[in-house]
Computed example of a mutant assay.
Amino acid sequence: MAERIHIKSPGEVAKMQKAGAVTAEILMEIGAEVQVGRTTREIDDIAREIFKKHKVGNSFYRYRGFPGQLCISINEEVVHGSGGPRRIQNGDIVSLDVGAIVDGWHGDNAMTVPVGMVDPEKLRLLAVTEESLFRAIELVRPGALLADVCAAVEGFVRPRGFTVVRDFVGHGIGRHLHEEPQIPNYRPHYKLPRLKKGMALAIEPMVNAGRPSVKILDDGWTVVTADGKPSAHFEHTVIVTDGAPLIVTDRPRIALPEQLGIAPL
């Protein structure tokens, strides 16, 4: 696997920083439009206009036939939901996953936002999922084992009563949306490489309030929890550097660790 991982040069990293910054900005702009009463189709239409405004390409639209401008998933929908008639309700949690192409380079990031008066346990699910992402990112250092990065997600989530989705994983990223290596949110049984400076990783915890099992709906895309319980999804595009990890999709957090009684990293 390691020999198929494209190591980005300093110039390519700079291009990924540009792509990541725009992708994060687009995600935040779409997130601000998530309101009670709007349908997921309306959010998808708004996303189309936001992409046009930024004059960048869309990583997801028509990728392998995907019909939406972004992935928008509500409550029990884990990932890969697209615009349709479902209406956002007070108390929902809405996952938004956005990918943009800038000068031929991809950025990819996701977040789950609370809408209105949200149940405290749903809010805890959001906070734990987002914090698990940062616990994993903190381990992204040259020479570190990628398997340890993966294990950090489940290692943080599981003691807090939640489970990680095992059927879908993060990935490498660069000139292509999906590159090697695969990045599960648990320690896999197969071998993963050590990290090297210049690797670009899309790390994306998908965490369920109930069991880890999921299923795909008849539309062929939308992934939902098998038990109907809510799920949360957070993602950043991260570059391995000589020192601290570089989060090219950096943006404000949804939840703060202090809300969980957790000391921040």
Score class of each variant (00 low, 15 high):
H178A: 08
A244T: 13
E25H: 03
Q17K: 15
E154L: 08
L96E: 05
D218L: 11
E3A: 09
T225A: 15
S73I: 05
S95V: 02
L192K: 06
Q17T: 07
M28V: 15
V207P: 08
G99P: 05
E76S: 15
F60L: 15
V113C: 03
A2F: 10
S95A: 15
N90W: 00
S231R: 00
R160C: 04
L123I: 14
R141N: 00
D45K: 10
L260M: 12
A147H: 07
D227I: 09
R38A: 04
I216D: 00
P120D: 04
D148N: 11
E130T: 07
D119S: 03
D148C: 08
K229V: 05
E179M: 15
T237L: 13
I30D: 11
T112F: 01
T40V: 09
F60D: 10
M199G: 02
C150W: 03
R48A: 14
G57L: 06
T222Y: 02
P212M: 03
I5N: 12
V157R: 14
R38K: 15
N109A: 10
D148S: 06
L125M: 03
P230Q: 04
G84H: 03
I173N: 08
I50Y: 00
H233S: 02
G243D: 14
T129R: 02
P212R: 02
I88D: 05
G37H: 10
E3N: 11
P252K: 11
K52E: 01
A100Y: 04
R64M: 05
I137Q: 11
P159M: 01
N75S: 06
A232I: 01
P184A: 01
H106K: 08
L246T: 12
A226N: 09
N208C: 13
V94N: 11
T129C: 13
T112P: 12
P184R: 04
K52C: 03
K55A: 13
E42K: 13
